[in-house]
Amino acid sequence: MSTAEKKVKLDIVSDVMCPWCFVGKRRLEKALKNIDQEIDVEIKWLPFQLDATLPPEGKDRQLYLSEKFGGKENAEKFYQTIKQAGDDEGIDFDFDAIEVSPNTMDAHRLIAWAGQQGDEQQDRIVELLFKAYFQDGKNIGDHAVLAKIAAEGGMDAQQVSGRLKSDDGLIETRQAVDHAHQIGVNGVPCFIFDGKYGVSGAQAPETLAMAIGKIANGEGL
């Protein structure tokens, strides 16, 4: 196979309120450093909602944890494994800083708009959203917060703010979330290679690198 043919399309189905998705992003970044540099990996971030029932303004974090885990203590036990995984990947999760569990629909709209400006722009916005939520405790469902993240990521904050106030991209984002369910995605992150092969979970860098290499060389998974 010639160099020009060594291309891999990688769709990442993810939710920015999913800590394992943040861990998965870090592990993918490690994987990309350890693949044949002749391989061109085209990455797109696609939306998923862990909890679409959350109201647009989000829900008090402690109330959310109480309803989901039966209290903060149970939640802390659940997040202990994630915290360790984060430490291993250089992510300093600060779950205590989170005051609001957000509805992520508008964050996904922002990610989609960033994607219209290129893969690197989209990746930059996804990274900023993860950091804002998991390390700074920001409410990434809040329009002012999203506009600020957009500006930090090099987008036009005023334009983003205006689009967030409208229904721009809302139907398309909901359809994309529905599509993820329709193709069998029931947990994230989910890595989909060339639209054919799906790998679920925050996989080890070696696993992701191997999968990318096989797809690039015309092999199946």
Results as ranks from 00 to 15, higher is better:
Ser2Gly: 10
Ala4Phe: 05
Ala4Tyr: 05
Lys6Arg: 15
Lys6His: 04
Lys9Phe: 06
Asp11Trp: 02
Ile12Asn: 03
Val13Ser: 04
Ser14Gly: 04
Ser14Gln: 13
Ser14Ile: 13
Val16Ala: 01
Met17Trp: 00
Met17Ser: 12
Met17Gly: 01
Pro19Gly: 06
Cys21Gly: 03
Cys21Pro: 06
Cys21Met: 00
Cys21Arg: 00
Phe22Asp: 08
Gly24Glu: 05
Arg26Lys: 15
Arg27Val: 01
Leu28Arg: 07
Glu29Cys: 10
Ile35Ala: 11
Ile35His: 07
Asp40Met: 12
Val41Glu: 04
Glu42Asp: 14
Ile43Val: 14
Lys44Pro: 10
Trp45Ala: 08
Phe48Asp: 06
Phe48Tyr: 14
Gln49Asp: 09
Asp51Arg: 01
Asp51Ser: 09
Leu54Cys: 07
Leu54Ser: 01
Pro56Lys: 04
Asp60Val: 09
Asp60Lys: 05
Arg61Ile: 15
Arg61Phe: 14
Leu65Lys: 08
Ser66Asp: 15
Lys68Gly: 13
Phe69Leu: 08
Glu73Asn: 06
Asn74Asp: 07
Lys77Gln: 15
Lys77Asp: 13
Phe78Val: 15
Thr81Val: 11
Asp87Pro: 01
Glu89Asn: 11
Ile91Gln: 02
Ile91Ser: 02
Asp92Gln: 08
Phe93Gly: 09
Phe93Asp: 05
Phe93Asn: 02
Asp96Asn: 09
Ala97Val: 01
Ser101Tyr: 01
Pro102Met: 05
Asn103Lys: 07
Met105Asp: 03
Met105Gly: 05
Arg109Lys: 08
Arg109Glu: 06
Leu110Asn: 09
Gly115Val: 09
Gln116Leu: 09
Gln117Thr: 10
Gly118Ala: 08
Asp119Ser: 14
Gln122Asp: 11
Asp123Leu: 11
Arg124Ser: 15
Arg124Tyr: 03
Glu127Trp: 07
Glu127Gln: 14
Phe130Tyr: 15
Ala132Lys: 05
Ala132Val: 10
Tyr133Glu: 09
Phe134Gln: 06
Gln135Asn: 11
Gln135Ile: 12
Asp136Glu: 15
Gly137Glu: 01
Lys138Leu: 14
Ile140Asp: 06
His143Pro: 13
Ala144Leu: 11
Ala144Gln: 13
Ala144Thr: 11
Ala144His: 09
Ala144Asp: 15
Val145Lys: 05
Ala147Ile: 05
Ile149Ala: 03
Ile149Gly: 08
Ala151Gly: 10
Gly153Glu: 05
Met155Leu: 15
Met155Ser: 04
Met155Phe: 01
Asp156Ala: 09
Asp156Gln: 07
Asp156Met: 02
Ala157Lys: 12
Ala157Val: 04
Val160Phe: 03
Gly162Ala: 04
Arg163Cys: 07
Arg163Pro: 08
Ser166Gly: 12
Gly169Ile: 06
Gly169Gln: 05
Thr173Tyr: 00
Thr173Trp: 00
Thr173Gly: 05
Ala176His: 03
Ala180Cys: 06
Val188Gln: 10
Val188Leu: 10
Pro189Ile: 03
Cys190Val: 11
Cys190Ile: 04
Phe191Thr: 08
Ile192Tyr: 01
Phe193His: 06
Asp194His: 08
Lys196Trp: 02
Val199Asn: 00
Ser200Arg: 00
Ala204Cys: 00
Ala204Met: 09
Leu208Phe: 03
Ala209Arg: 05
Ala209Asn: 03
Ala211Gln: 06
Ile212Val: 13
Gly213Phe: 04
Lys214Ile: 02
Lys214Glu: 02
Asn217Glu: 11
Gly220Phe: 02
Gly220Lys: 08
Gly220Arg: 05
